[in-house]
């Protein structure tokens, strides 16, 4: 089953009114589905494929307007188990380990290693440059707060910082998390534009 644009949209709308938050929620759910399928035995396809299949089925049911009686989590859980049972039945008898190559046959030298490493270092440098630029775009208040937060976190002094700012540690961490997300959302397009150049 395929995850179409429409079914994907319907699922996101079901997860959160804010599309960006919905995407993050879906990412959490997807990752845990992958972990769930990774734990299962006798599966031939990749756990990622099963996770996408589960999400596709759930998304299609939501788009069809199926009434989710308990909650979305229960619904996903039910679908993943049905999928697993189906796959077990279909795949149990197929030969296993067909693609497994013994370790001694793995290539020892990667001829492109040096080149890849060079590219990787350049990419890291670009990422740091973009992060620096994006951090500079923050308001002075946010920038000051984030600096203090990181420093306190590094030193294990978040409780003291919370006391000084007359707030809770939870509120501090959530505020820092939002600032961090703001910087990160700026880094992505910055990196893309550099890639084009």
């Amino acid at each position: 089953m395929e995850l179409t644009q429409e079914t994907h949209k319907a699922l996101l709308a079901h997860l959160d009114a804010d599309e960006n938050r919905a995407k993050v929620k879906l990412e959490f759910i997807y990752c845990n589905l992958v972990v769930f399928f990774k734990h299962q035995k006798n599966l031939l396809a990749d756990p990622e494929d099963y996770a996408i299949e589960t999400i596709s089925r759930v998304a299609e049911r939501i788009q069809q307007g199926v009434n989710i009686r308990k909650s979305l989590g229960d619904f996903i859980h039910g679908v993943k188990r049905i999928l697993l049972l189906e796959k077990w039945r279909n795949e149990k008898k197929t030969p296993k380990d067909i693609d497994r190559v013994p370790i001694e046959f793995h290539p020892v030298v990667d001829p492109f290693e040096e080149e890849n490493e060079r590219d990787l270092n350049e990419w890291e440098r670009q990422r740091c440059e973009c992060t620096r630029q994006c951090f500079e775009k923050l308001s002075p208040e946010k920038s000051k707060f984030f600096g203090e937060f990181q420093e306190a976190k590094e030193q294990g002094g978040l409780d003291e910082l919370a006391e000084r700012l007359q707030t809770t540690r939870n509120a501090l961490e959530i505020r820092a998390c939002r600032i961090r997300a703001e910087v990160k959302s700026c880094v992505k397009p910055c990196l893309k534009s550099r890639q084009k150049d």
Partner: peptide, 18 residues
């Protein structure tokens, strides 16, 4: 339980992100 909670509870989801 956790997935049901953070899908419907914003505070819980914020905490998960932090």
């Amino acid at each position: 339980r956790l997935e049901n909670q953070y899908v419907s509870d914003d505070d819980c989801f914020d905490r998960l992100l932090a």
